[in-house]
């Protein structure tokens, strides 16, 4: 199977296939359309950045793509599974198996060590403890964080926490990585380190969707989609993308 490296790979299977996604919030008697009918296809191996100002609907879209929220209308197929008929537990299982999250605020469990944080998704997948530890260590090594395995999040810098969070996103080997302003809470040095890790994941052929308002961050992705007022404005392909095709 042909796999693109960041760029459009028209012949690979879609990881994300969303049609007419709508999300309308009801606040009291008034309604706010945060997302009004968005179509999006992201194929396996693509990396896509969604850009837009605050309130453009990009976070709402990411919430829907991550199965953290349900659309008011529209159809969302992730890795061939139509999500519209799934109940809460089936969605939880799908998130666990198919999606790795990287949040702006890291969202590590404060009371647990880096290793236990990374292993947490495996716990919910029913993996046994020795296997969880082995795979968590492997994931921490991937992001160069194995030395911090026994530290609590509060004992780590922001950049270190985000690398632990990336390890957690990778540990279950999901088909899709979703990143919400992954460098938003970091200084430029730590942010650069996190972007290096994301570049490597992209080059390994992982499917990544990230949202950002920072064009520098967006330039690390193969595609950039711009949002405004709950819809897409347009799309551009990134020319700085290192090209080449995976076998």
């Amino acid at each position: 199977m042909a796999e693109g490296r960041g760029g459009v790979a028209p012949f690979s299977s879609p990881v994300i296939d969303a049609t007419g996604l709508q999300r309308i919030y009801t606040v009291g008697s008034s309604t706010v359309a945060a997302l009004r009918g968005v179509d999006l296809v992201v194929r396996k191996g693509e990396s896509a950045a969604i850009m837009g100002p605050s309130g453009s609907g990009k976070s709402t879209l990411l919430g829907l793509l991550g199965l953290l929220d349900r659309p008011t209308a529209g159809r969302y197929v992730i890795q061939g599974t139509d999500t519209s008929t799934l109940d809460d537990d089936e969605l939880a299982a799908l998130r666990n198996r198919a999606i790795g999250f990287i949040f702006q605020a890291f969202n590590l469990l404060p009371a647990e060590s880096a290793e236990d944080n990374v292993a947490a998704p495996l716990l919910y997948a029913g993996v046994r403890r020795p296997e969880r530890q082995r795979r968590a260590m492997a994931a921490l090594e991937t992001v160069g964080s194995a030395d911090w395995r026994s530290r609590r999040p509060t004992e780590l810098s922001g950049g270190q926490q985000q690398r632990v969070a990336i390890a957690r996103a990778l540990v279950g080997d999901p088909g899709l990585i979703l990143a919400d302003e992954p460098t938003g809470n970091l200084d430029s040095v730590s942010g650069g380190e996190v972007l290096d890790v994301l570049d490597r994941l992209r080059d390994e052929g992982r499917t990544i969707v990230l949202i950002t308002h920072d064009p520098t961050v967006a330039s690390h992705a193969g595609r950039t989609l711009r949002m405004s007022d709950g819809g897409f404005l347009g799309e551009e392909l990134c020319s700085t993308e290192p090209d080449g095709a995976g076998a």
């Binding site: 953290l68 939880a92 998130r95 666990n96 198996r97 969202n107 919910y124 957690r168």
Partner: peptide, 16 residues
């Protein structure tokens, strides 16, 4: 509640 949100995001079911 935030911890519950994190756990659900990484795949915890209600019963978990």
């Amino acid at each position: 509640t935030r911890e519950i949100g994190i756990r659900k995001a990484i795949g915890a079911r209600r019963s978990d």
